[in-house]
Nucleic acid binder design. Structure first.
Lengths: 220, 220
DNA sequence: CCAAAAATATGAGCGCACTCATATTTGTTT
DNA sequence: AAACAAATATGAGTGCGCTCATATTTTTGG
């Protein structure tokens, strides 16, 4: 299983190969974990199960993810990246009014997490919460939060430019983030068919919020 | 250490005594736990330490609190009860304008949790998050949330009556709850002397929110 | 091609939260 | 006070997440 050194002084090739293998192992672990999380939730899944399903030793798992929680956090990093990429490609959204834009974004987030409802219930808040500086997760989760906030900030800034809303600065993105947390909470409890009630609430609150901001005027 | 049956057919007395002991043990555990939480945070405190400090066997602890997290949740139940009692007695607040009222309430909450900053950072979000129906904690945490929401609802209803704000219904309390979470997050990260920045943000946001609601008018 | 070195994989072992069969204490009835 | 029942306390045991000394594989340099 050794790989012959094809390139005498090659650096790119071996490195590329190694990184690829490493990436593939990480993907395998992540895939195994998410499938188990979806079936049995976070607490119902053991690291032994995950490593078994991924075909590695239990200890190896912790070479790739510092903790089981860290593994869970990865789900949200993936989700955020996918969301941003998706938005960048959704051309029709770029000119939509702000409430519609935010509705589409949050709606997509809900669809994305839908298959993992139980898992989400267990870790969503934990993944977003601030952590003590000592926690090994603080860096990753903070970066994730910042990335999301920047994404929302840009959208709000665009709306400000178009005079859809008065300038609200950084607080705006922060508020949207909080709002999203509230929506997810409602969504988790929503027993209605297809989570209709949450979608209705989402639509209504976004329109209301925008209206209030507009009526509030530009003179605070 | 037996207690003589003073009342022949008495029910109240023995029951009272028993409950008292039980209560006292529970208090002892809670006191020990909070002291250790304050010193070492949640993760840094073991159930062995807690039971040792409380003078009981380790297994006994779990007769009183289903999980270590449940023990942490108790802190917030106590905090909420204390807050409501305090507000009931703070006569001068009853006639204050809404933003001042909310400022005083949230400010008191922050003061209350201040000595436990690290502990709070670890469990605040977890304790308030919705839980799957399977979780043994779902009932307690839901009750706590409802109690807090009712408390805030009453205050908002009063402000509506006084025409300080337009009628916003149940969403209002929900929004305040979310807002509080945001403030605590900011507070946890706030390095400023005496957390001044958070207090300034608190004041500003409350005034802003009230203003927006007023300007938004009564006609949605 | 062959060491030496660096990267990665391994699983026995550790401390933890939590369980449970049993022992002890407390309460009730006669 | 004795006999029984109910409540409470106990700590050895269990399975978990995670660590770490060691083994294996891969990469590098001559």
């Amino acid at each position: 299983m050794k790989q012959p050194a094809e390139a005498k002084k090659g650096k790119a090739a071996p490195k590329g190969k190694r990184n690829l293998n490493k990436e593939r192992t990480k993907e395998k672990i992540l895939a195994a974990a998410l499938e188990l999380f979806r079936e049995n939730g976070l607490e119902g899944t053991t690291t032994k199960q995950i490593s078994r399903k991924a075909g590695i030793a239990e200890g190896t798992l912790f070479n790739y993810f510092k903790t089981k929680e860290d593994l869970a956090l990865f789900f949200f990093q993936k989700e955020t990246n996918d969301l941003i990429r998706w938005y960048g490609q959704a051309a029709r959204l770029q000119d939509a009014p702000l409430p519609e834009k935010l509705f589409a974004i949050i709606h997509r987030q809900l669809e994305y997490i839908a298959p993992y409802e139980e898992f989400i219930g267990a870790v969503f808040f934990r993944s977003l919460q601030p952590r003590s500086k000592l926690s090994p997760l603080s860096l990753e989760s903070q970066e994730l939060r910042l990335k999301y906030l920047r994404f929302v900030s840009d959208i709000l800034a665009q709306a400000e430019e178009k005079k859809e809303i008065p300038p609200i600065g950084e607080l705006g993105a922060y508020a949207v983030g909080l709002f999203y947390m509230g929506i997810v909470t409602h969504w988790l409890h929503d027993p209605s068919e297809g989570k209709q009630k949450t979608l209705a609430l989402l639509d209504r609150s976004l329109r209301l919020g925008t209206t209030l901001l507009k009526k509030g005027g530009w003179d605070w």
